[in-house]
Structures are given as structure tokens and as C-alpha cells.
């Protein structure tokens, strides 16, 4: 009897841990960001200066450049990844025979399993030179980071889209085919409307992933504190700035880094929540 109660309590405390972690992360980031929040307020979001004073005591810190860099690299990634991921999902559900769809599915999922640092390495040494020779620029910059980011999120997006397309009842598809619809018409008028929620959900989840991605972007975005004037220009993003400069920062600069981490955390929290609850729903049972 005692064992049963202990077991139940332990499982209850384990379950509440995710709640405490989430609240704990928010509370810690918020507390450590206070100094910077008091100093700069909401103007932090629009201030493009990031400069420490000579004496290292203070300075002016604004998050505009990393915020813009994060947004732009994510937008580039989404523009490239979305059509490709949709295409792959359509190929897997409607075009390929099972004998082809299965290995292709596994390959796509393996692509998703490769650690992000590998994408960064590969991107830096193999992809950046190609971008440099075809589009120009230094090789590293917004465009390269965006493209490699796209390659990273495609498998993830394609897998969720495929799963939700697969839930379309066969009867619906068959009725449309019986009316003489082409494959594309079935996809557009039957499958897409049926799995709309899942597809939009997968796009938003991938968006959240791209916003928070650190290592692949760290190799490729250039890590320069400047506003990009051109799509191939180097800049920086919130995760990359944190990865490279967080540990060495002092006082007000450190606090500003926490401020940026808080912004990233809150934004991805809302994005994930919207994707999960508004579009993907929860499959209870």
C-alpha cells in the first residue's frame, strides 16, 4: 500500500516538473533581464546600437540587429522550405508507391536527425562557396544561413504535413477521382482543405524551430553586429549572439543578453502554443 502511494506521488511530482521548468525559465530570464529592461525599456527592440563603454561599466545595448537578423534569416528559410516540404509530402502521400515512399520517408527522417552543427560545418565549407560564386558576397551571410536553415526544417515540416495528409479518408479521395478529378484537383480540393489545420500547424512549428536554431546559423550568418543592406550581407541573430558572446559579457551587457533570450523564449512560446492548440489540436486518447 505504501509503495503505491509513493509511486503515485513520485509520478505526480515528475509531471509537475515541466510546469516548474517553464515558469522557472521565464522567472530567471525575467529577473536577470531587469537591469537592461529598466535601462532601455521597450526601445531595446528598436535600437540598433550595441556598444560597451570603454571602462566596461555600461554602454548602450539595443536588440534591433539580432532581432532583424533572426527574422530575416527565418523568413528566407520559410520561403524556401514551405513549397519544398509541401511537394515532398504530396510526393510521399499521393505519388510514390509504397515501395518508394517508405525508403524516401526514412531518408527524410534521417535528414531531420542529423545534428544542427553538422549542417553548419557542411554549409560553411561546401555551401557557402557555392553561394559566393553564384550570388556574390562573402559566402557567409543572411542568404546562406537562410538556405541551410531551410534544408534543416524541410524534413520536419514534410513529416508532419505528410502525417496530416494521410488522415484524409480514402472515401473522400475516391469520390473525387470517380468524378473525374485529376490528382492535383484531389490534392487541392480534397486533401488540402481536409488537412489544412495540420499543414498550417507544421509550418508554424517549423517557424518556431528556425527562430531558435543556433548552431547551423552560427557558422553561416557571419556573426557581425551590422544591419544587412543586401541579402548576402553578414549579420547576426539572437541565438548566434548568445552562443558567441553570452559567456564573456559583463553587467549591463549580460543583462541585455538575458533580455534577448527572454524575447526569444516568449516569442517561441507563443508560436508553439498557437501551432499546437489552434491548428494541430490535441489528440487526447
Amino acid at each position: 500500500m505504501m509503495g503505491g502511494k509513493l509511486f503515485r506521488n513520485f509520478s505526480f511530482f515528475s509531471a509537475t516538473l515541466s510546469f516548474f521548468l517553464l515558469v522557472g525559465i521565464f522567472a530567471i530570464l525575467f529577473t536577470y533581464a531587469q537591469e537592461s529592461m529598466h535601462e532601455f525599456g521597450f526601445d531595446f527592440l528598436f535600437n540598433g546600437t550595441w556598444e560597451a563603454d570603454e571602462d566596461d561599466e555600461g554602454g548602450i545595448f539595443g536588440g534591433f540587429i539580432p532581432i532583424i537578423g533572426t527574422l530575416l534569416s527565418t523568413i528566407i528559410a520559410m520561403v524556401i522550405a514551405t513549397p519544398l516540404a509541401m511537394g515532398i509530402a504530396i510526393f510521399l502521400t499521393e505519388i510514390a508507391s509504397e515501395a518508394i515512399a517508405k525508403p524516401v520517408s526514412i531518408a527524410i527522417e534521417l535528414l531531420a536527425a542529423i545534428p544542427s552543427i553538422i549542417y553548419g560545418m557542411w554549409g560553411l565549407f561546401y555551401f557557402a562557396p557555392i553561394v559566393q560564386s553564384t550570388v556574390g558576397g562573402n559566402g557567409v551571410g543572411l542568404l546562406t544561413a537562410g538556405i541551410v536553415l531551410a534544408i534543416m526544417i524541410i524534413p520536419f515540416m514534410a513529416a508532419i504535413t505528410r502525417d496530416s495528409m494521410n488522415t484524409t479518408p480514402l472515401v473522400l479521395k475516391e469520390s473525387a477521382y470517380a468524378m473525374g478529378a485529376t490528382k492535383f484537383e484531389v490534392i487541392k480540393d480534397v486533401i488540402m482543405p481536409y488537412s489544412k489545420g495540420g499543414i498550417i500547424g507544421s509550418i508554424i512549428l517549423a517557424l518556431g524551430r528556425a527562430l531558435g536554431e543556433t548552431m547551423a546559423v552560427a557558422f553561416l550568418i557571419g556573426s557581425v553586429m551590422s544591419i544587412p543592406r543586401n541579402i548576402t550581407d553578414p549579420t547576426t541573430s539572437i541565438p548566434v549572439l548568445l552562443a558567441n558572446n553570452f559567456a564573456e559579457a559583463q553587467d549591463l551587457e549580460m543583462s541585455s543578453m538575458y533580455y534577448l533570450a527572454l524575447i526569444l523564449f516568449v516569442v517561441s512560446f507563443f508560436i508553439i502554443t498557437i501551432a499546437k492548440f489552434y491548428f494541430l489540436g490535441r489528440k487526447v486518447k
Binding site: 515541466s18 536577470y32 548568445l242 552562443a243 559567456a247 523564449f265 512560446f269 508553439i272
Partner: peptide
């Protein structure tokens, strides 16, 4: 249970660098 399930789903997609920052502070 449903609240915890949802929060855990959100935690699953939290940016890994933010978790690094959190643990650094802690």
C-alpha cells in the same frame, strides 16, 4: 493532466540556447 501535457509539448520545442542560458544562471 491536460495542462501539463500541453506545457510539456511547449517545452519540447523551446530553443536549446535558451535552456543553456537558463542553466548558466542556475
Amino acid at each position: 493532466a491536460s495542462v501539463i501535457r500541453n506545457l510539456s509539448d511547449v517545452m519540447m520545442s523551446a530553443p536549446s540556447i535558451v535552456i543553456g542560458v537558463f542553466v548558466f544562471a542556475l
